[in-house]
Amino acid sequence: MKFICLLLLLATGGEYLYFNNQLDSNRRKLIVLSKENSQLKNRVKEIKKYNSLSIKFSEPLYSYGEAKSNSLLYLSPLETSPILCKMNTSAKIKLLCTAEVLDEIWYEVLLDSPKNINSRGWMKKDFIIINEVTTTSINFR
Protein backbone atom coordinates (compact mmCIF):
# COMPACT_ATOMS: atom_id res chain seq x y z
CA MET A 1 0.00 0.00 0.00
CA LYS A 2 2.82 2.39 0.89
CA PHE A 3 4.52 1.57 -2.40
CA ILE A 4 1.41 2.48 -4.39
CA CYS A 5 0.99 5.78 -2.51
CA LEU A 6 4.65 6.62 -3.08
CA LEU A 7 4.33 5.77 -6.78
CA LEU A 8 1.18 7.88 -7.05
CA LEU A 9 2.90 10.79 -5.29
CA LEU A 10 5.91 10.59 -7.66
CA ALA A 11 3.63 10.48 -10.70
CA THR A 12 1.73 13.53 -9.48
CA GLY A 13 4.97 15.41 -8.88
CA GLY A 14 6.24 14.50 -12.37
CA GLU A 15 3.02 15.67 -13.98
CA TYR A 16 3.21 18.93 -12.03
CA LEU A 17 6.76 19.59 -13.24
CA TYR A 18 5.89 18.67 -16.83
CA PHE A 19 2.81 20.90 -17.02
CA ASN A 20 4.59 23.73 -15.20
CA ASN A 21 7.35 23.65 -17.86
CA GLN A 22 4.70 23.66 -20.61
CA LEU A 23 3.01 26.65 -18.99
CA ASP A 24 6.29 28.58 -18.75
CA SER A 25 7.09 27.79 -22.38
CA ASN A 26 3.69 29.01 -23.54
CA ARG A 27 4.05 32.19 -21.46
CA ARG A 28 7.36 32.96 -23.19
CA LYS A 29 5.80 32.33 -26.60
CA LEU A 30 2.89 34.59 -25.74
CA ILE A 31 5.23 37.42 -24.71
CA VAL A 32 7.22 37.10 -27.96
CA LEU A 33 4.05 36.97 -30.08
CA SER A 34 2.57 40.02 -28.36
CA LYS A 35 5.79 41.99 -29.05
CA GLU A 36 5.71 40.93 -32.71
CA ASN A 37 2.04 41.83 -32.90
CA SER A 38 2.66 45.33 -31.56
CA GLN A 39 5.55 45.80 -34.02
CA LEU A 40 3.28 44.77 -36.91
CA LYS A 41 0.57 47.15 -35.69
CA ASN A 42 3.09 50.00 -35.67
CA ARG A 43 4.16 49.09 -39.19
CA VAL A 44 0.55 49.09 -40.37
CA LYS A 45 0.13 52.56 -38.85
CA GLU A 46 3.15 53.72 -40.87
CA ILE A 47 1.68 52.30 -44.05
CA LYS A 48 -1.73 53.87 -43.40
CA LYS A 49 -0.27 57.34 -42.85
CA TYR A 50 -0.85 58.17 -46.52
CA ASN A 51 -4.42 59.49 -46.53
CA SER A 52 -4.29 60.47 -50.16
CA LEU A 53 -1.53 59.13 -52.33
CA SER A 54 -1.16 60.13 -55.94
CA ILE A 55 0.98 58.19 -58.36
CA LYS A 56 1.86 59.60 -61.76
CA PHE A 57 2.60 56.79 -64.21
CA SER A 58 4.47 57.29 -67.47
CA GLU A 59 6.48 55.40 -70.05
CA PRO A 60 10.22 55.26 -69.29
CA LEU A 61 12.52 57.11 -71.66
CA TYR A 62 14.85 54.10 -71.87
CA SER A 63 14.01 50.42 -72.01
CA TYR A 64 17.04 48.91 -70.33
CA GLY A 65 19.41 49.69 -67.50
CA GLU A 66 21.52 48.21 -64.76
CA ALA A 67 20.67 47.87 -61.10
CA LYS A 68 23.47 48.90 -58.77
CA SER A 69 24.86 46.42 -56.26
CA ASN A 70 23.07 46.30 -52.89
CA SER A 71 19.89 47.66 -54.45
CA LEU A 72 16.44 46.73 -53.21
CA LEU A 73 13.46 45.47 -55.20
CA TYR A 74 10.13 46.50 -53.63
CA LEU A 75 6.64 45.11 -54.11
CA SER A 76 5.20 48.59 -54.72
CA PRO A 77 6.68 52.05 -55.27
CA LEU A 78 6.77 52.91 -51.55
CA GLU A 79 9.63 52.48 -49.10
CA THR A 80 7.21 50.99 -46.56
CA SER A 81 6.22 48.19 -48.93
CA PRO A 82 7.70 44.70 -48.55
CA ILE A 83 11.14 44.07 -50.03
CA LEU A 84 11.11 41.28 -52.59
CA CYS A 85 14.88 40.89 -52.82
CA LYS A 86 18.20 42.56 -52.17
CA MET A 87 20.65 42.26 -55.03
CA ASN A 88 24.22 41.80 -53.85
CA THR A 89 25.71 42.38 -57.31
CA SER A 90 24.73 44.62 -60.18
CA ALA A 91 22.26 43.14 -62.66
CA LYS A 92 20.77 43.99 -66.02
CA ILE A 93 17.14 45.09 -65.88
CA LYS A 94 14.34 45.97 -68.23
CA LEU A 95 12.45 49.18 -67.41
CA LEU A 96 8.71 48.61 -67.75
CA CYS A 97 7.11 51.69 -66.25
CA THR A 98 7.94 54.96 -64.46
CA ALA A 99 6.05 56.30 -61.47
CA GLU A 100 6.40 59.49 -59.46
CA VAL A 101 5.34 58.93 -55.86
CA LEU A 102 5.88 61.42 -53.01
CA ASP A 103 8.31 63.44 -55.17
CA GLU A 104 10.48 60.39 -55.91
CA ILE A 105 10.94 58.57 -59.21
CA TRP A 106 10.45 54.79 -59.21
CA TYR A 107 10.83 52.28 -62.03
CA GLU A 108 8.93 49.06 -62.45
CA VAL A 109 11.65 46.65 -63.51
CA LEU A 110 12.08 43.11 -64.73
CA LEU A 111 15.27 41.38 -63.61
CA ASP A 112 17.32 39.31 -66.02
CA SER A 113 16.86 36.15 -63.99
CA PRO A 114 16.40 32.51 -65.01
CA LYS A 115 13.79 32.13 -62.28
CA ASN A 116 10.44 33.83 -62.55
CA ILE A 117 10.19 34.27 -58.77
CA ASN A 118 10.45 37.82 -57.37
CA SER A 119 11.94 39.02 -60.64
CA ARG A 120 9.53 41.89 -61.18
CA GLY A 121 9.05 44.83 -58.85
CA TRP A 122 9.82 48.49 -58.17
CA MET A 123 13.20 50.21 -57.71
CA LYS A 124 14.10 53.77 -56.84
CA LYS A 125 15.79 55.83 -59.51
CA ASP A 126 18.88 56.13 -57.27
CA PHE A 127 19.54 52.38 -57.56
CA ILE A 128 19.46 52.29 -61.37
CA ILE A 129 22.17 53.16 -63.88
CA ILE A 130 20.75 54.01 -67.28
CA ASN A 131 23.14 53.76 -70.21
CA GLU A 132 21.80 56.49 -72.49
CA VAL A 133 24.17 55.65 -75.34
CA THR A 134 23.35 51.98 -75.79
CA THR A 135 19.97 51.04 -77.20
CA THR A 136 20.66 47.34 -77.60
CA SER A 137 18.20 45.02 -75.99
CA ILE A 138 18.91 42.34 -73.46
CA ASN A 139 17.58 38.84 -74.04
CA PHE A 140 14.70 38.70 -71.60
CA ARG A 141 12.01 36.06 -71.47
Rank of each mutant, 00 (worst) to 15 (best):
residue 39 Q to S: 15
residue 41 K to Q: 08
residue 41 K to L: 06
residue 45 K to I: 06
residue 46 E to N: 03
residue 46 E to C: 02
residue 47 I to Y: 06
residue 49 K to S: 14
residue 50 Y to F: 14
residue 51 N to I: 13
residue 52 S to C: 09
residue 52 S to G: 09
residue 52 S to K: 08
residue 53 L to E: 09
residue 53 L to D: 11
residue 54 S to V: 14
residue 54 S to I: 15
residue 55 I to G: 08
residue 55 I to P: 11
residue 57 F to P: 01
residue 57 F to V: 02
residue 59 E to N: 07
residue 60 P to N: 00
residue 60 P to C: 02
residue 60 P to R: 00
residue 62 Y to F: 06
residue 62 Y to E: 10
residue 63 S to K: 05
residue 63 S to F: 01
residue 63 S to C: 05
residue 65 G to Y: 01
residue 65 G to L: 03
residue 66 E to L: 06
residue 66 E to N: 01
residue 66 E to D: 00
residue 66 E to W: 00
residue 67 A to P: 00
residue 67 A to G: 00
residue 68 K to F: 03
residue 68 K to T: 02
residue 68 K to M: 03
residue 68 K to C: 04
residue 69 S to C: 13
residue 70 N to S: 14
residue 70 N to V: 12
residue 71 S to L: 01
residue 72 L to V: 12
residue 72 L to M: 12
residue 72 L to F: 14
residue 73 L to E: 08
residue 73 L to W: 02
residue 73 L to R: 03
residue 74 Y to M: 10
residue 74 Y to G: 07
residue 75 L to I: 10
residue 75 L to D: 12
residue 75 L to C: 09
residue 77 P to L: 09
residue 77 P to R: 01
residue 78 L to K: 00
residue 78 L to D: 07
residue 79 E to N: 15
residue 81 S to T: 04
residue 81 S to A: 11
residue 81 S to Y: 11
residue 81 S to K: 05
residue 82 P to R: 07
residue 83 I to G: 03
residue 83 I to T: 03
residue 84 L to E: 12
residue 84 L to C: 08
